[in-house]
Amino acid sequence: MDEEELTAQETALYDRQIRVWGVDAQRRLSKSHVLVSGMSGTIAEFCKNIVLAGVGRLTLMDDRVFSEQSLLANFLIPPDASEHCGRSLAEICCDSLKEFNLMVRVSVEKGDLSSFDAEFFDKFDVVVIAGCSLTIKKAINEKCRKRPKRIAFYAVDCRDSCGEIFVDLQSYTYLKQKGEDTFEHNMQYPSLVDSIAVPWRSLPRKATKLYFAMRVIERFEVAQSLRPGETSAADIPSVLELKKELCKVQSVNESHIPDRLLERLLTHPREHPAVCAIIGGILGQEVIKAISCKGDPLKNFFYFDAADGKGIIEAIADYVSS
């Protein structure tokens, strides 16, 4: 570990959080480089959290241009369109984020994430993607897994008042605290491909229904070549049909995935700002844990639904046959 000391400025600014996670963790944070793709409301929340926490560098990717839609749950985008003439969402958000913490280097990378080769990812410690299709999620996850260094991978998706986080830390070792003792603890994470390949009937009956509902919708979107969230109420009949099929193939009862839940997710694909804050907060915390190697990281899915208020960890990883 580098013995560099934090500057007086850093100590003063980060005083309250150093009291939570310690100087070593703060030092590791300040040396980390995070990539995010897809400037959704949840990602805006996440970026705010890690910029405040003091990561070293943050790279933003999103070439889309300003639209009324883009600012609905995103407080990093000023609403006056005339200010943005032709600039990308990543560039607009970059300007706002820089102001939050002058010690963090925030920058923009242009291009289509899925077109970058695997070496591109080597400069990052953490990759977070949002609003990506299942195909892209899988591809990026595989690229991250094939690199010589460990790159933590997160995929996040918020629809209606629900949110999902997928985590892949590959082989992750950290200092686990149990009572007074701390000891080295290793956790193995499966890829997204292997995780979602787990047969549904082998998962516990009480596994959250959101997990299954999200799998149905992502398959539907791939089949229809839709971007995540481009669904509408008109898709309900076809999605319910797909659900029926999948339940049959997976030999689980159709009640596993309530129709009402699917209807909610399809009809209101927009993000709910309160849910963005919650998912962005949990995601921020997980990334801080992964970088600082401090605290138990979640494995390997997280769900929040404002309808029941529960924030649940689903360890689908535990059912992946090796």
């Binding site: 939570v20 929340e45 705010k48 959290n49 405040l52 962005g280 907060g281 949990i282 921020g284 915390q285």
Partner: peptide
């Protein structure tokens, strides 16, 4: 002790 994430949540 205080961190941004908990406050946001």
């Amino acid at each position: 002790h205080a961190v941004a994430t908990t406050n946001a949540i």
